[in-house]
Design a protein around this nucleic acid. Structure first.
Lengths: 213, 213
DNA sequence: GTCTATAATACGATAGAC
DNA sequence: GTCTATCGTATTATAGAC
């Protein structure tokens, strides 16, 4: 992971504070005043760096979060021992993040989606793009493990859905259980297929060998 | 399903309008003014029926949604042809709800969770209870199909996580794909176990027969 | 007991001082 | 070019008319 805590410019601090506040209070529940205060920035700097106001800041926060956590997914696939392990590691990392923050730090993109998807096309579109970045990162990891394009796309949607929902349940319950429960079943699905992919690679002719019987 | 559209008292209309607005705009993004207008109720009635204000209304909206959709889960298990079918039907029903509302009507409990879990213990607790109602409904359906208590609990957490996350992704993408993709994989996991449960019932001695090999 | 009018405050956005 | 002071509006909440 890149060093995100480096002391950099005011705009970057505003974006970081925005991500943090959107995670904990949602987009609508986070005010620009809280945001500038959290960033240690004067009130006017919000409109200096984001002339179009809160919506523009939200769009950039979501885009940055998309890029950053997309890198996280890719790194997990690079480092892990197979796709099932890579995915389980992300679930477990998220469980640690939640526990360490007393279940405050959820997913900023999910929060912005639920608050704004029906009221701001710019923000909904930004959230869709951020999710797309993550989906493609997961897809890429699955394809490298041998998944076909279509299978990788569908599995990626399932994996991301499971972790996003588990984060919501874990936050409500203040417990890592939903994340850990989901991780096990998701891993089961992925590992099962990864085995089939290996078998198909070893036996390229017998394409039906992966059917359950 | 109970008839939810019956023309009843003002309090019930306020609760319904609250559920609808929380689904589309989140808790923080929905104002009491919008809410009373949507309910066709005068401004003062909000504080007449909910003296403690928006938070109290939110708690009651979440509790009612928990009860109502909990019944929905139970009915799906009662009517469907096995637990996998019951669960897939709920995913598909949710996909239809989203499409019919142009992807506005998400889950009110998830929305309230992400906006308030870190700022209002009363609302976080209400959301946790609503999710618990749904989890126990799913658990009950799975146990009736033969799942052990522990297995039913873990599977229910996985199932609810998957659908909640898929709703978020579907809303952002304005596409039913995440819900339909997740439905297939969740069903695969559940059907697989349901087969084992049937086998275990037919062969009560061979408890290890359910291991994959 | 319902509803209208209003208070007090917080919000997003702007304008102008330095 | 940064930051402070302020505007107009929207919010939650209350108080008082009917």
């Amino acid at each position: 992971m890149k060093d995100r805590a480096a002391s950099i410019g005011t705009k970057e601090r505003l974006l970081r504070a925005g991500e943090q506040l959107f995670r904990t209070r949602g987009y609508a529940g986070a005010s620009l005043k809280q945001l500038t205060q959290a960033a240690g920035a004067p009130w006017g700097s919000a409109y200096h760096f984001f002339p179009d106001g809160k919506e523009q800041l939200g769009v950039e926060v979501v885009r940055q979060a998309g890029d950053f956590y997309g890198d996280g997914w890719r790194e997990s696939f690079d480092r892990a021992d197979g796709p099932g392990d890579a995915i389980e590691r992300v679930f477990r990392a998220e469980a640690r993040i939640l526990e360490a923050s007393d279940y405050r730090n959820g997913c900023p993109v999910a929060s912005v989606t639920l608050d704004t998807a029906s009221t701001s096309e710019a923000l909904r579109s930004a959230c869709a793009s951020a999710f797309e970045v993550w989906l493609r990162a997961i897809e890429g990891g699955l394809r490298k493990a041998g998944a076909s394009d279509g299978e990788a796309t569908a599995l990626a949607g399932f994996v991301l859905s499971a972790i996003e929902g588990a984060i919501v349940l874990s936050r409500a319950a203040k417990s890592p259980a939903p994340l850990l429960q989901s991780a096990a079943f998701v891993r089961e699905v992925v590992d099962r297929r990864a085995e089939d992919w290996r078998a198909a690679r070893a036996n390229p002719v017998q394409t039906e060998s992966s059917e359950r019987g």
